[in-house]
Design a protein around this nucleic acid. Sequence first.
DNA 1: GGTGCTTCTGTGAGCGTTCACAGTAGAGAA
DNA 2: TTCTCTACTGTGAACGCTCACAGAAGCACC
Lengths: 344, 344
Amino acid sequence: MTMSHQTGGRRKPPTIHDVAREAGVSRGTVSRVLNGGHYVSPAAQEAVNAAIRKTGYVVNRHARSLITGRSDSVGFLLTEPQEKFFEDPNFNVLLRGCTQALAAHDIPLLLMIAGTEDERRRISRYITAGHVDGVLLVSSHSGDPVAEQLREAGVPLVACGKPIGQGSKVSYVAADDRDGARDMVSHLLSLGRRRIGMITGPLDTPGGVERLAGYREVLADAGVEADERLIVPGDYSRAGGEAGAAELLSRIPDLDALFVASDLMAQGALTALQRAGRRVPEDVAVGGFDDSPAATAGSPALTTIRQPWDRISSEMVRVLLAQIGGEDPSAVILPTELVKRESA
Amino acid sequence: MTMSHQTGGRRKPPTIHDVAREAGVSRGTVSRVLNGGHYVSPAAQEAVNAAIRKTGYVVNRHARSLITGRSDSVGFLLTEPQEKFFEDPNFNVLLRGCTQALAAHDIPLLLMIAGTEDERRRISRYITAGHVDGVLLVSSHSGDPVAEQLREAGVPLVACGKPIGQGSKVSYVAADDRDGARDMVSHLLSLGRRRIGMITGPLDTPGGVERLAGYREVLADAGVEADERLIVPGDYSRAGGEAGAAELLSRIPDLDALFVASDLMAQGALTALQRAGRRVPEDVAVGGFDDSPAATAGSPALTTIRQPWDRISSEMVRVLLAQIGGEDPSAVILPTELVKRESA
DNA sequence: GGTGCTTCTGTGAGCGTTCACAGTAGAGAA
DNA sequence: TTCTCTACTGTGAACGCTCACAGAAGCACC
C-alpha cells in the first residue's frame, strides 16, 4: 500500500493532476508541496504526500524546465586530450565526487568531453543554448577557448584549479598548491636530504607555477643553494615523469630526493629511478602531489600531498549552484595534507 | 552575417516562432525542417535554414520532450564499487567512446554512478521515471539488482559484456572472450611455454568463465596435462593480480608463463613476479587481456588481447538507439586481436 | 463592524514545441 | 470542366508544469 505500482509495461505516468485529484486539492497546492512546501497547511501537505506515494508520481522535468527556464542539470566539461583522461585517475575521483555532490540536489551530470574540434563546437553550442544551467570545468591548461566562450556568454562556470588570466571573473576551487609544495619539500629536508630535484607541472598553469614557487621558497628559507639544474619541467603524464627523472639523474647523479608535482608523474619517476638502480627511499626519497589512486598503485607507495578531492568536488558543486542562483563568482582554496607512506 | 549574435548578457533565446516570422513561414514548416525536412519545398527549406542561422536559433529540448515523451538523452550507468572505477582505465575508454558515439546523434550522456544504496534507489527512480530514454550499463558483476529492475520496467538497456542469466531478454555487446583467450594461450604455447598459469576474471560472470574456458580448451587441444593448481581466481583488480601471481609462484615455482584475464591484474602480477626476482618475459611470459591503457603503463609493456573498445562503444550506442526505436534486444560479439609487445 | 494583516487555496494563462487535421495549389486524368 | 491525387503549408490543441493573481478564511486591532 505504500509502494508505487509496478506496471509491467509502458503506461502513461501519473501527472500532477492525478495527484491533485487523489489528494482532493488543486494542482497549485501539489506544486507548492513539491517545491518546498511553503504556504501549505499540514493537512494538505500530508494528503499530497500520501497521494504521491500512492500514485508513484514523479515530476516531469521537461514540463518544469519549460516554464522555469532552468534545466536542473549541469555539464561536466573535460577539455583534456583523451590520453590524459585515460591515464590519470584524478578525473575519475573528481567525476565520482561531483556526481555524488550533485545527486544530493537531484541534479544529473552531463558528461562532455571536448576532444575533436567538432566536439568543441557542438558542446559550446549545446551549453550556450541553455541546455545545462552551469558547467564544472576540468582542464589543466585552462586558457581553453571553449571555456573562454562560455565565460563570455555568461554561463555559470566553476573550474577545478585556478584558471589562467582573469582574476575574479571565473569561479574556481583549488587546493593550496604553494603550501602543499612547501610541506613536501620541508618534509624532504627534515629527512636530511639536500640535493632535492623537482619535476614541475605545466608552467603555463597557475597550479604548476605555484608548486614550483613553494619548492623554491622552502629551499631559500632553509639556506640551501639554488640550482636550476635541479628543476625539470613536466606535464602531469606518467611518461613525462619518467623522462624527467631520467634527465635529472643524468644531470645530478648524486640526487638524494625528488619532489614530483603529480603522483602520476611520480610513478613514472619511480620507474626511471628503479631502472637506474636507485633504491627508493634509501638512495632517493620521492614525494608526489595529489594523493590520487595512482599513489598507491605502484611500489613503493608514494608519500604525497593530499588534495582533498571530496571537498574539492563538493565545493565545486556548491559554488556552481550558488552562481546559478545568482551569486557572484568566487574562489575557494582548500588546505592540503602531507601523507607519509613508503617513498619518503 | 552568418554568425549568431553574440549577446553578452542573458537574453531570451529565439523560439521557433521567431524563426518562422523571419523566414515568412509557419511554425509547422519550421518544425518539419527541423525534423528531417519531409514535405517541405526547397524554397521554404532554404528560407528556414537561413532564418535559423540568422537568429541563432537552437531548439528547446524541454518543449520538444514534453510533447514527444522522449528525453533524447541516455544514461551511462556504472554499478561497480568506486575503487574499481578509480583504478581501471577501461571505464574511461568506454565512457569516452560512448560520449563520442552519442554526440554524432546529438544525444547527451548522463553519468550515473551507483555506489551507495541511496544512489541505487535514486538512480533507479530517475530512470524508470522516463528521464532518460535508455541506459548503457557497465558492471562486471551484472546480476545487478538495479539492472534487473530496469529490465523489468521495460527500459531499453544494453550491457557491456554478457550479463548473467536471461538469454535474449537484454541486449549486450561483448568481445569474443573465449576466442581471445584461445589466441593468447596458443601464443604462449608457441613460445615454447608449457607450465602456463592463469589468473581468471570473476567466475560469476560469463566473461570470466569464457576466458577460462578458452585457456582450458587450448591446453587440452595441445595435449598439455591439466593442472588445476595452475588456476587462481581473480577479480580484475591490480591487487588481485598481485596476490594471484604470488600464490601461483608459491604453488608452482617453475611456472614459465602466465595468462592474466585483465591488463590491470597483469600489472599487479608483473609487480609480484619482479618482486620474486623473475624476469619477464625471459623466466615468465605474461599475457594480459583488454588492451587497456594499463597495458602500456608499466614495464615491460604487456602483450595482450585487444578488445575493440571503439567498436564496442559504438555498437552499444547503436543497439541502444535501435532498441529505443522499438527493435528487439540483440547481442553483438566482436572479434579480438592479439597484440604482441614485450611481456610475451 | 470595518480594516488590515497573514496564511492558505484554486484558477487561468502560458512556457516552446509537435502533431493531427484542415486546407490550398497545381498537375494530371476522366 | 471537374475530379482526384500529391506536395506542401498553416492552425489549433495539446504536453505537464509553475507562476501570478485573486480570493477565502482566520485573527487582531482599532
